[in-house]
Structure formats: structure tokens, C-alpha cells
Nucleic acid binder design. Structure first.
Length: 739
DNA sequence: GACCAGCCGTTTTTT
DNA sequence: ACGGCTGGTC
């Protein structure tokens, strides 16, 4: 038992041992919160004799859930670890609903609609309501509906609150969208949460069984919960109140999808008897990296729980600041640097990661890395499960599980091409709608030759094609009952002549690539072989719908990880490159006009910086290609918040080489002191450039100073260069006086 | 109903 | 630069 507490610092130990009542753990990055979470579970089971069946842990990704179980395997043995309930909010809700959704008058074999399905369905809604897609972008409308659902606002309530014209549109769409989802026996991502809350709300008896079962609740990444998740937790914890949440408001980066950091900030009001534990010692990073992170976060808006992070890890190498000429040069620098470090035996590929704000930025990196033969794995981007051929193939499997899934049905109605064109589809849809039945039902009626009052005007040839499709689907439904998943997939591939279809459609090269994806899909399907026959398909489909891309990171592969900053949350690497630290990218231009969202961008950078264990590179480019044109870039404003002596530029002597203050080894209680907000350490006290002064810049060339002023402890110089006037920060721009 | 050529928007982040 | 969509033709 005692070894469960060994090696934990006093705060961590308190977090593990405080068994009863609400606990809020405010944990800085790298403070071992995953460890605390895991050890607490182990402690409950091994030292307190708690039955693992009574524990529910919620993690942010499936990967985190899997890793937690693996660690518990080692700590308390597989038997105990397997009995535990661990998962993501969405995964857990899907499980709860599968069991109990009949209480809401629904079928258990519901499909889960991902963003692509959601958008397709929204298109259908717009067509049904005769709304123009151009004027009413499906994504925009769906975004409104999604945030309404995250806030637990039903269509009726939305209608009540709607004010503006657009709200009226959204209201009508929301209603129709829900009706179609129900008709398709489908739930979208947001419904998984909403419907679970509704289930618990309307059926206290069902809720009570869960409250009884889950005596201990643990939630990770609490700062990124949305309102629906918050309510869900409140419902589940209401009885036993053994709620243990861990989070870091400074790392809240999902506000844009409904996460509300106030859930965490108000925890003490929600649970007045809550214990609050601060984890401030960082075990991950060097002092240099931590100092940089603190400088960035401290310059932001005021925070509630201000943590004083410290580490005993020592100063480590200085954080590097690098400016590339353009994105390719930036990528080349990254690739060269990784190759250099690996060649020098300093690190392995797998310990390196490159992080960026947008997926589009990965292209230049991929090119540079592969040109140098640096192995890499790209996370995100064109996601595997979203590739067309994969989704098309999956659509058939989804139909086999639930033929009422109209989005999947229309998706493959004419794929591969079987002579069912747009007109036929439109007519079938119209007919089904006038009968008030799902498309599949309409197909059946049609095939059985049933006559209905709303007439159907289809050519005999079209009717025959539709019959053929129905036969195919029904064949799959039958096959599903007797064949294991992998065989079902093989049957499907044969019946639709998938390989030939791919060749026909895409040409040899592309078709082969796509066929590889189908084979990967088959390999994934094969993993469900061990399950009972009737569970294989549903489990497979559910996992496919809910896996995150980070779940696909292969920790065994010796390869550099390329990943977005959002997905990097919770991960750590010895060497981290943050690229594209420029205005418009980080902070992203879409967040520039909103103070809150700007702060979220800052936290995103903070998250990125704190992923690094030993070496950190902050990179930006002088010019960047976006869309089809290149633009000159301005270094991110957040860089200006980092005291210049913390940063080193390659090929330059350290900015403050004569002052060894930062090089001293950190003492255990060497609490980091934040620089006074809005005044960078070592910043100028007066302007040093005067109008008319001629200056030279490494990349811009010669120019003339137009004006200069002090901004946030730095000097902002406006210089007229040959191409145009530019504003530069004196601490970054390397302006050389001439004449 | 299939096919082709040209056009447009796409890109912020994701369970 | 790419892929999906539109509008035209066969």
C-alpha cells in the first residue's frame, strides 16, 4: 500500500489520500496530475478496499483512458483494473444510453453522427425547408445548434429565446434536424451528452442506479468541460459527493466548442466543503522552459488560481527563437535541427514533436522531413475515419446495423454508381417525406409495390435500380446476423466490387492508396473478432465514431510527431518545435477581434510550451504562403511577452550572456517570480529610435524610422522599407542603425 | 443519367 | 493547389 504513496510530494499525497468529499485539484502542467489520478484510484482500491466497480473516471481522450488502465494493471493487477469504468464523456454516455435509452422511447442500436454526417443532414434540412445554402451556411447553422445542445437548450427553448432573424432560421432548422435524427435513429455528438442528461433528469430511478454504483467520481481536464458535461457530473455526484476533479484553467483551450472554464472556477461555490489542492511542482520541464511559459501566461488576463510553478530540474538549454525566411525555410530548420540532434545522440525521433496552430501548416513540414529522411507521424489533417472511401465503406456497415440511418443511405445510394441519379434520389426523398417514413422504409414499400396516395413518378429503370440497392442492404443485414464483422466486410467488398470501383473512379495510383485504407479498416475490424457476434458491429461502429486522432499515435514508432496544439494537450516530448508563431496564425486571425478568444490563443501557446521537457524552439517565418499568395508575417504578439534574455537565437550569442542569473541551478523552493504584468523584464524605459533614423534589417533591407513608441515594455518602431511600412518590436527586429 | 470543364471556397482548433 | 459542386452537353 505504502508504495502507492512513495515518491509523491506532500501535495500529491494529499490529493491521493483525501478520500471522501469533493476535491478540486488545481494542477499546473507537468505536475503529475495523471499520476495523482491513477494513484488515487489504486489507493482507493488497494488501501481503502473500494470495489473497482464503484469507481468512474472520466478522461479527455480514449488514449488517456487506455494508458490509465495500463498503469493500473501494473499497480493493482489486471483483474481489478479491468473492473473499473474509465472513458471519455462521449464514450461513457454512449454506453449509458445503449443500456437505458429505451426509457426515452428510442431504439438502442442508434447510429452516432460525426461532423461530416451532421453537415450532410443539415444540408438535407435546408433542402426540406427550402432554404438557400449560400445564405444559410449549413456549418454556421449547425454550429449554433451544437452550442445550444452543449448548453442543454432544446429546440423549444431555443425558439423562446430567439430574437434575431437568423435565430428564426436556426430554430426551424434545429426542429427539423432533430426530427430527422430521430427518424434515422441517430444521435449526433452533442446528443450523446444532452440525451444522457435528459435521461437522468426524466428518470430519477435510472439516475439513482448510477449514483449508487459510482460511489467515486474522478474527472480529468475539468477546465475543458462544457455545460452539459458539468450538469452530468453534478447529477452523478449529487448523492455521494465523492467528486474529484483535476484541471488547470491556464490550459483551457476548448472554449470555442462550448467548454466553460467557469465550471472549474466555481467548483468551490458548487461544493462549499470542497478541498482545494494546488500542484505546483513541475516534473516535466527545465527552468528555462517553465520561465518562458510563465512569462507568456502571466502577461494575460488575471487568473483565479495563480500557481507558482517551480522545478528542481535545472535550467537546461536556453529556449531558441528562430526566424525562417518562409514556411519552407522554417520547416527546413526544424528538420535539420532534428536530424542534427539525433545524429549527435542527443535525442531520438520519437522524443521530438512539431506543433502548429492549423492543420494546413503540416504540409511544409512533411515535405522538409521526408526530404531529409526524417521519419514522422502526422496526427490529424485528413483524418483516417473521414476519408471518403473509408466513410463510404463504413456507411454500408452502418446500414447493416441500422438501415434507417438516412445519411449513410444517401451516401452510398449511388456509390459505386448503379444508375440512381440525383433526380431519382430527390424523388425518393420527396416520396418518403410525404409518407412520413425513413428512406429505407420507403424503399421497402416501393419494392413491395405498395400504392400510396402521394404518387411516385419514377422510371421503371430507376425503380429496378432502387430494388437492387434494397436487396444489397437487406443482404448485408442478413449477413450481419450470421457472419463475424471481418467476414461481413469481406462480403461487402465483394458484393459492391469495391476494388474495381475504386480503380474506375480514381485511377490506379490513387485507387491503390485508397485500397490500402480499406485494408487498414479491415485490420481494425479484425480486432473485434473476440467479441460475441452480435456485439462486434455495434462496438466497432461506436469506437469508430468516437476515436480521436491522438488515439492513433504509435508510441513504438521511432518517428517525429507532427500535431496541432489542440491535440497536443496532455502529451509531452523532450524536444518541441512550435512553428508559425505569427500574428494571424497564433493568435489566429479568426480570434483577433475578441478578447476572450485572444486569451485562449495565449493559453494555447502556453500549452504548447509546456509540452517540452528539455528543448524548446519557438519558430516563426518572415513570409508565409496562405491560400495562393504570400504575405509578410509579423511575429506573434505573445513572443513579445517573453523576456528577451530567456531566448537565444541560433547563430547569435545569448541575448544576455554576461548575466548568468538564469543559469544558476534552481533550488528546490526556487519559486518562479512572474515579471510585472505588461512590462517585460529588461525592456527599454525610453524610445531609442527617432524618426528619420536610417536602419537596416536582415530580411527587409534598409529603411527609415517613421515613429517609435513604448508598448508593453518594448519599443515599437514603425519603419518605412522599400516594400511598405512595417511595425517592428525593437527587441525582436534586430534593427541595425546606419549613418 | 453520365460525363466533362470550369469555378469556388477552403482553413482554426475537434469529441 | 485541390476537391467538390455547378452547369452545360451528350
Amino acid at each position: 500500500m505504502s508504495d502507492l504513496l512513495e515518491g509523491l510530494n506532500p501535495a500529491q499525497r494529499r490529493a491521493v489520500e483525501t478520500v471522501a468529499g469533493p476535491v478540486l485539484v488545481v494542477a499546473g502542467p507537468g505536475s503529475g496530475k495523471t499520476r495523482v489520478l491513477t494513484h488515487r484510484i489504486a489507493y482507493l482500491i488497494a488501501a481503502q478496499g473500494v470495489d473497482p466497480l464503484n469507481i468512474l473516471a472520466v478522461t479527455f481522450t480514449n488514449k488517456a483512458a487506455r494508458e490509465m488502465k495500463e498503469r493500473l494493471d501494473a499497480l493493482i493487477g489486471p483483474a481489478q483494473a479491468q473492473a473499473l469504468t474509465v472513458g471519455t464523456f462521449h464514450g461513457l454516455c454512449a454506453r449509458f444510453l445503449r443500456r437505458d435509452i429505451v426509457h426515452l422511447g428510442r431504439e438502442q442500436d442508434f447510429a452516432i453522427y460525426d461532423s461530416d454526417d451532421q453537415e450532410r443532414l443539415m444540408r438535407r434540412v435546408l433542402r426540406d425547408l427550402n432554404l438557400n445554402e449560400k445564405q444559410n451556411p449549413p456549418r454556421a447553422i449547425h454550429a449554433r445548434i451544437s452550442s445550444a445542445k452543449n448548453a442543454l437548450i432544446s429546440p423549444q427553448e431555443y425558439a423562446r429565446h430567439s430574437r434575431a432573424y437568423f435565430d428564426e432560421i436556426v430554430t426551424r432548422c434545429y426542429e427539423r434536424y432533430q426530427a430527422l435524427l430521430r427518424e434515422a435513429n441517430a444521435l449526433d455528438f452533442d446528443d450523446l451528452l444532452f440525451e444522457t442528461v435528459r435521461l437522468f433528469d426524466q428518470h430519477p430511478d435510472v439516475l439513482a442506479t448510477y449514483q449508487e454504483r459510482y460511489v467515486y467520481l474522478l474527472v480529468d481536464e475539468y477546465q475543458d468541460t462544457n455545460h452539459a458535461q458539468y450538469v452530468l457530473i453534478k447529477q452523478l455526484a449529487a448523492r455521494r459527493r465523492n467528486l474529484f476533479v483535476v484541471g488547470d484553467a491556464d490550459q483551457s483551450i476548448y472554449g470555442w466548442r462550448g467548454a466553460d472554464v467557469r465550471n472549474m472556477l466555481q467548483f468551490e461555490q458548487d461544493y462549499p466543503d470542497a478541498q482545494v489542492i494546488l500542484l505546483e511542482q513541475n516534473y516535466r520541464s527545465t527552468q528555462s522552459i517553465l520561465d518562458t511559459a510563465q512569462a507568456v501566461i502571466a502577461a494575460g488576463a488575471t487568473r483565479k488560481h495563480v500557481k507558482r510553478l517551480w522545478t528542481a530540474n535545472g535550467a537546461g538549454p536556453q529556449v531558441m527563437l528562430h526566424e525562417g525566411y518562409d514556411q519552407d525555410a522554417e520547416a527546413a530548420f526544424v528538420a535539420d535541427e532534428i536530424a542534427r540532434l539525433v545524429a549527435a545522440g542527443e535525442t531520438r525521433y520519437r522524443d521530438c514533436a512539431v506543433m502548429y496552430r492549423t492543420n494546413a501548416q503540416s504540409r511544409a513540414l512533411e515535405e522538409a522531413l521526408s526530404r531529409r529522411g526524417v521519419p514522422y507521424q502526422l496526427i490529424g489533417g485528413l483524418r483516417f475515419w473521414e476519408r471518403k472511401e473509408v466513410k463510404d465503406t463504413l456507411a454500408y456497415l452502418r446500414l447493416a446495423a441500422n438501415p434507417y440511418d438516412s445519411v449513410s443511405l444517401t451516401r452510398v445510394l449511388n456509390w459505386p454508381a448503379r444508375g440512381i441519379g440525383e433526380r431519382t434520389e430527390a424523388e425518393l426523398t420527396r416520396w418518403a417525406a410525404s409518407l412520413g417514413v425513413p428512406l429505407y422504409q420507403a424503399l421497402r414499400e416501393l419494392a413491395e409495390g405498395n400504392e400510396y396516395s402521394p404518387s411516385l413518378s419514377l422510371a421503371p429503370r430507376a425503380v429496378a435500380a432502387l430494388r437492387g440497392f434494397l436487396g444489397l442492404v437487406d443482404g448485408l443485414i442478413a449477413a450481419r446476423r450470421e457472419l463475424p464483422l471481418l467476414k461481413l466486410l469481406e462480403t461487402l467488398v465483394e458484393r459492391i466490387e469495391l476494388r474495381e470501383a475504386l480503380l474506375r473512379e480514381y485511377g490506379e495510383e490513387s485507387a491503390n492508396e485508397r485500397w490500402d485504407n480499406i485494408e487498414e479498416l479491415a485490420a481494425f475490424a479484425a480486432r473485434y473478432n473476440g467479441l460475441p457476434l452480435e456485439e462486434q458491429l455495434p462496438c466497432f461502429l461506436e469506437e469508430v465514431a468516437l476515436v480521436a486522432d491522438v488515439d492513433r499515435i504509435d508510441p513504438q514508432a521511432d518517428a517525429v510527431t507532427c500535431i496541432t496544439l489542440h491535440q497536443a494537450k496532455g502529451l509531452e516530448y523532450a524536444v518541441v518545435f512550435l512553428v508559425g508563431l505569427e500574428e494571424g496564425l497564433l493568435p489566429h486571425s479568426r480570434s483577433a477581434d475578441d478578447r476572450e478568444r485572444l486569451e485562449e490563443e495565449r493559453r494555447l501557446l502556453y500549452v504548447g510550451i509546456t509540452r517540452a521537457r528539455r528543448r524548446l524552439y519557438l519558430c516563426h517565418a518572415f513570409r508565409r504562403e496562405s491560400f495562393n499568395r504570400t504575405n509578410l508575417s509579423v511575429p506573434s504578439r505573445f513572443l513579445a511577452d517573453i523576456p528577451r534574455e530567456l531566448l537565444k537565437r541560433p547563430g547569435q550569442r545569448p541575448a544576455n550572456a554576461s548575466a548568468p542569473a538564469r543559469q544558476r541551478p534552481a533550488r528546490p523552493r526556487d519559486v518562479w517570480r512572474a515579471p510585472a504584468p505588461s512590462r517585460a523584464v529588461g525592456g527599454p524605459l525610453a524610445v531609442s529610435f527617432v524618426p528619420g533614423q536610417r536602419v537596416r534589417h536582415n530580411t527587409f533591407g534598409e529603411g527609415v524610422v517613421v515613429s517609435s513608441r513604448l508598448v508593453d515594455g518594448d519599443e515599437e518602431v514603425t519603419v518605412s522599407f522599400a516594400d511598405r511600412e512595417r511595425r517592428l518590436l525593437a527587441s525582436f527586429a534586430r534593427l541595425e542603425r546606419i549613418g
